[in-house]
Design a protein around this nucleic acid. Structure first.
Length: 959
RNA sequence: GCGGCCGUGAUGGAAUAGGCGAGACAUGCGAGCCUUAGAAGCUCGUGGGCGAUAGCCCGUGUGGGUUCGAAUCCCACCGGCCGCACCA
């Protein structure tokens, strides 16, 4: 902007310019802070307040809180924050007590990696980033209750994260009651003998370690030695949810290997059915519900035992109706029946074993060992890549098909996964394409037991692929005791399941794809576990009085990372290097006095802090309780239409569809079961905002060039004279196309930025940023300003006169439309309606009637709060506009006195009539047929049919 | 491969339940006013084609269908985005 005063500026010193906007915005932001304008009162406690406001219906409106990354914000980040802010402001103006704030999710990999890069302590860099981000956000005029902003790295916050962990650790899932219960109640059952110990010995006879091991099988948080996702490149283990389909880490894209390590887990699988069922009561996008359903992956089927000598292989199948077609059995390579003491692998190949089955090895044991080794060395990436070619090896053992009585060979193959079902399948090659491919490769027999509905015939050896259909009939499936022939799939399943149960060799079961949640990480920058181990290795919970267990200061907080491709490595936790902190003498208050313990040196994953932060917003200073029950009930409790309670609106990106949202739901359910909260679901309504995309310009070498310096000529793009290509991509520093909110605020003001982001399109759709187009919303605000204020004098120009009929109609239609659009989060069309009204006033000329100007300002206020406050004040009001009532439409002016009725002949409009909205069909038809243009167009032709949709339309079909 | 979503002017996008000439609102572009000039601001125009005007024809990815009437419903195809991916 020019420093010199131009003629235009001299003529209009009070024009709404960026400079004036900056002045207005800074003043009102200070005003809001001073007056606590956005503070929402609790019904009780230290944040209690105005009882009249508390008495109003509540709205709890939240964003997914951000990581305070060092890169700062670009204009894509605040999209959701602006949307929730507009919505929150609208709700305040329509009679609600609105809780709206924003905290920071500051533990975890990104913060730590940034700290390692910059060589500063994560706490220092994180705190600095938070300060920086808060300043950027403040400039946008977001109406947050600052008293409630929390940071997950604050010991006063993570004290309660640790406390919740202990609640989960000290609970077990009672499958009969379908809820979590305190572990003490389980111990009591063991003590009384009501529940038997695994080996039948009395509880009193068990050692401390044995008891701990028994309870470990029940606890909802437990440590176990299980195959986990080990990522040498990151130096930590990862949850299944953090590993991509390609078998790489979601962060950093490093290879991930399976390794057997002792790690903490959360028994989220205990809640699989409730996590699935309760989705029905939530107001979430169907796509997200679907993703959660798929992730939980419920499938109904049966377990069936296949005898092998005096052992048995239990398989899981969803197609028990095809049991007669099971011609071989496959175990996962990791299955214990081929490795453990109960191995079924014989010493020598049975007589006449097919050459392709042996893999060329002299004995089954050699073959099995070699294959297991080969499978273990493969990363998931390689396993995926080879998915089409089935590999495996014969174990040398034969099982018996329990219905056909046939001897069926037992194989191991990596297409069967240890982690799903029982890690063993019955193979029905005729009706499963994977089994079909394997059977082809190993020349195994196939048996058709589902009658094909096409013309392929019943000999599978002539087929190109397996046949599978739920509409076909079962055939070729009978023996002395049971016949499924002629039954449909559903009936056959029911019959065989019942039969298996009666024989005691199987039962109907439900299997879930969901696995337990791996909860420990080998990181510094996370919550320490409030767990210590005694000399026997028994884990003990720290008493509540020792919380928070603060993260110790260490010399070296960087993780030990390895060659990303070296699977033969194991993690090292940064906290373990600090012997002084690790080895401690404590009195746990369990009557055993002071003893020496060793601390858990893993830390919690970055999801921990975000699993419950909505609860801390409610009662951020409470150091006695997680959250006061009265306060929690007020903001989160179930109510009409919200059977499980929860936040009224939660806005964030769809990338959290399963991770954060599933974990948070799980923690809510545990806390609910234990009676700490009244809401069984954290987020009643979820909304995914779209992404703001940006153009990426690349030169010949494919390197991104600064987008701001690219010039457009004749539809082509040039950077420093060189032609560059343009594609739509993400916005960010690395692609050199980031636009910051600060520069837009500088150029136009925060209100313009807010308006532009909301006007770009529907909130849930991704769209490209276009800096050139921002000026459109700036012009709207200038025109709005000019409709109220004289640019030359700064005086208010509104007139105390009655608006004319046209203006009243424009006003009330706008009010009606904007109300509906705001309630439905359709801010783009709300802005269009406001623009129309404002344009109407501009065109009308002269002074705007005060009553219209005031209501226009109220309509704009949620979207552009600073100019809203300023104009409201200029119009003579002394209170903030934030708590004013949103205008209400007078229906008399919303419905037009006359409506335009179109008269069509064969769907083509031939005439238009101005008619009353209440005209009857008969009158309208008569009027239409009498219309000269219609008579002319019909040209004497007869009428076959007349469709009348009063008052809008008449359609005449000539003979 | 399976599942889901989506294709509207130069651009972002409008269009309550199939029904008021599709294209609201905005950007861009064009013309004019203002200005020494530019920028800003203001006014008007802006889907394509034909026509001086009135007006006519064609238009919501492509092709078919249902209907008095389709951007909206159905089928097939083309293109794009997202999720899952040997889950038995």
């Amino acid at each position: 902007m020019s420093e010199t005063t131009t003629a235009a500026e001299a003529a209009a010193p009070h024009r709404y310019t960026a400079a004036l906007a900056a002045d207005i915005e800074a003043r009102w932001q200070d005003f809001w802070d001073e007056h606590g304008t956005y503070e929402a009162p609790n019904p009780s406690g230290d944040l209690a307040g105005d009882p009249q406001l508390v008495a109003k219906p509540k709205k709890f409106i939240m964003d997914m809180f951000p990581y305070p990354s060092g890169a700062g914000l670009h204009v894509g980040h605040p999209l959701g924050y602006i949307a929730t802010d507009v919505y929150a402001r609208f709700q305040r103006m329509t009679g609600h007590n609105v809780l709206h704030t924003l905290g920071f999710d500051a533990f975890g990999l990104p913060a730590e990696q940034y700290a390692v890069q910059t060589g500063t302590h994560p706490r220092v860099s994180t705190e600095a980033n938070i300060v920086n981000m808060k300043a950027q956000l403040r400039r946008l005029g977001l109406g947050h209750d600052q008293r409630r902003s929390v940071e997950t790295i604050d010991p006063a916050y993570y004290k309660w994260t640790q406390w919740i962990f202990l609640q989960i650790f000290n609970s077990w899932y009672d499958a009969d009651a379908r809820k979590a219960r305190p572990i003490d109640e389980l111990v009591a059952q063991f003590e009384s003998g009501e529940r038997e110990t695994p080996d039948g010995r009395a509880w009193a006879d068990l050692s401390a370690l044995e008891r701990a091991n028994v309870l470990g099988e029940y606890r909802l948080a437990y440590a176990s030695d299980a195959p986990v996702n080990w990522c040498p490149g990151l130096g930590t283990v990862l949850a299944n949810e953090e590993v991509t389909a390609e078998g790489r880490s979601e962060r950093g894209n490093f290879p991930v290997f399976k390794a057997k390590l002792r790690q903490w887990n959360m028994r989220i699988t205990a809640y699989a059915d409730r996590l699935l069922e309760d989705l029905d009561g939530l107001d979430w996008p169907e796509a997200i519900k679907l993703q959660q359903r798929n992730w939980i992956g419920r499938s109904e089927g049966a377990r069936v035992d296949f005898p092998v000598g005096d052992q048995r292989i239990t398989v899981f199948t969803t197609r028990q109706d095809t049991l007669f077609g099971a011609t071989y059995v496959v175990l996962a390579p990791e299955h214990e029946l081929v490795s453990g003491p109960d191995s079924i692998v014989p010493d020598a190949w049975p007589e006449g074993t097919h050459d392709v089955w042996t893999g060329g090895y002299a004995t089954p044991a050699e073959a099995v060992v070699a294959y297991r080794k080969q499978a273990a060395a493969k990363s998931d990436v390689e396993r995926q890549a080879e998915a089409k070619d089935k590999t495996g090896v014969f174990t040398g053992a034969y099982a018996t098909n329990p219905v056909s009585g046939e001897r069926v060979p037992v194989f191991i193959a990596d297409y069967v996964l240890m982690g799903y079902g029982t890690g063993a399948i019955m193979a029905v090659p005729a009706h499963d394409s994977r089994d079909f491919a394997f059977a082809r490769a190993f020349e195994l027999p196939m048996r058709c037991v589902v009658e094909p509905s096409d013309d392929r015939g019943t000999d599978p050896s002539t087929w190109d692929d397996a046949f599978s259909s739920y509409d076909a009939k079962i055939v070729n499936s009978s023996d002395d005791t049971i016949s499924l022939d002629g039954l449909g799939v559903t009936e056959a399943k029911a019959k065989i399941t019942e039969w298996l149960a009666a024989q005691g060799i199987g039962e109907g079961t439900v299997n879930f794809r969901l696995r337990d949640w791996l909860f420990s990480r080998q990181r510094y920058w996370g919550e320490p576990f409030p767990i210590v181990y005694d000399e026997d290795g028994v884990a003990h919970a720290l008493p509540e009085s020792m919380l928070p267990l603060e993260l110790p200061e260490v010399e070296d907080y960087s993780p030990r990372t390895f060659d990303p491709d070296d699977a033969d490595t194991s993690p090292e936790t940064p906290l373990s290097r600090n012997e002084e902190w690790v080895n401690v003498d404590l009195d746990l208050g369990d009557g055993k006095g002071v003893r020496r313990y060793r601390r858990e040196t893993n830390t919690m994953p970055n999801w921990a802090g975000s699993c419950w932060y909505e609860l801390r917003y409610l009662d951020p200073n409470n150091d006695e309780k997680l959250v006061d029950p009265t306060v929690e009930q007020y903001w989160m409790g179930p109510r009409e239409g919200q059977p499980h309670g929860g936040v009224d609106l939660y806005v964030g990106g769809a990338e959290h569809a399963v991770l954060h949202l599933l974990y948070a739901r799980f923690w809510s359910k545990v806390l609910f079961d234990l009676g700490h909260i009244s809401s069984a679901e954290p987020f009643h309504k979820l909304y995914n905002q779209g992404m703001i995309q940006a153009f990426v310009y690349r030169d010949k070498r494919g390197i991104a060039v600064p987008a701001a310096e690219v010039e457009e000529r004749d539809g082509a793009y040039y950077y420093q004279g060189e032609k560059v290509s343009r594609v739509l991509g993400k916005m960010g520093k690395s692609l050199k196309n980031a636009v910051t909110p600060d520069e837009i605020c500088q150029e136009y003001g925060a209100d313009t930025l807010r308006l532009y982001e909301m006007a770009m399109g529907p909130l849930d759709v991704s769209r490209p940023w276009d800096t050139r187009a921002v000026v459109g919303q700036y012009r709207l605000l200038q025109r709005l300003w000019r409709n109220v204020v004289d640019e030359a004098t700064g005086e208010v120009t509104v007139a105390d006169v009655e608006p004319d009929e046209d203006t009243l109609r424009a006003l009330h239609k706008a009010i009606d439309g904007v109300r509906q659009d705001m309630a439905g989060l359709r801010f783009n069309t709300a802005i269009a309606k406001i623009t129309e009204l404002n344009n109407h006033l501009t065109k009308a000329g002269g002074s705007v009637p005060r009553s219209v100007a005031e209501r226009l300002v109220l309509l704009v206020a949620p979207l552009a709060p600073h100019i809203g406050e300023e104009l409201w004040r200029k119009l003579g009001h002394t209170d903030s506009v934030v708590h004013e009532d949103f205008p209400e439409a007078d229906s008399a002016y919303v419905v037009d006195e006359t409506v335009t009725c179109v008269v069509q002949i064969k769907g083509k409009v031939k005439a238009r009539l101005e008619v009353s909205p209440s005209i009857s069909d008969a009158d309208l038809e008569a009027a239409a047929l009498a219309e000269p243009a219609v008579v002319a167009a019909l040209d004497g032709a007869g009428i076959r049919k007349v469709i009348v949709r009063a008052p809008k339309l008449v359609n005449i079909v000539p003979a």
